[in-house]
């Protein structure tokens, strides 16, 4: 599979755990990128093409909501699919993310197969 996935989470442990699930979904390790906050994630999307973002919300420096807002302002990458993977349960915030076109939501704690299924669905591949 030649899709690039960007994993955005301030926990390096969670980035590694999500990376493992993405590899289970058939994404080669060399296609996986990581960022520890929204600011780092914007740097990545500005430097290379990203097919899917797996995004935490509650992060220091720039949180996930700010990242989505910034991403949607950039015409060349505004349509990038996003799966929010977060503990976020605030109804207003989740609605704002939906309004900004977040594709899917996965509440932490999640089961690996649930994330694997969503990645496969959005990238059109079978694990």
């Amino acid at each position: 599979m030649s899709c690039n996935i960007l994993i955005v989470d301030d926990s390096s442990l969670l980035r590694k755990a999500v990376r493992r699930v993405a590899e289970m979904a058939g994404v080669p390790a060399e296609r996986l990128r990581e960022a520890a906050n929204g600011r780092e994630a914007l740097d990545v999307v500005e430097s290379e093409w990203i097919d899917l973002v797996l995004l935490d919300i509650n992060m220091p420096v720039m949180d996930g909501e700010q990242f989505v807002r910034e991403l949607r302002r950039r015409p060349d990458v505004a349509q990038t699919p996003i799966i929010v993977v977060s503990t976020e349960s605030n109804a207003e915030r989740l609605q704002r993310l939906k309004d900004m076109g977040v594709t899917e939501f996965l509440r932490k704690p999640f089961q690996p197969e649930d994330l694997c299924r969503l990645i496969s669905k959005l990238l059109g591949v079978k694990p």
Partner: peptide
């Protein structure tokens, strides 16, 4: 209708 906001 959760209105709580979680910190870090």
């Amino acid at each position: 209708s959760c209105a709580f906001a979680i910190g870090l």
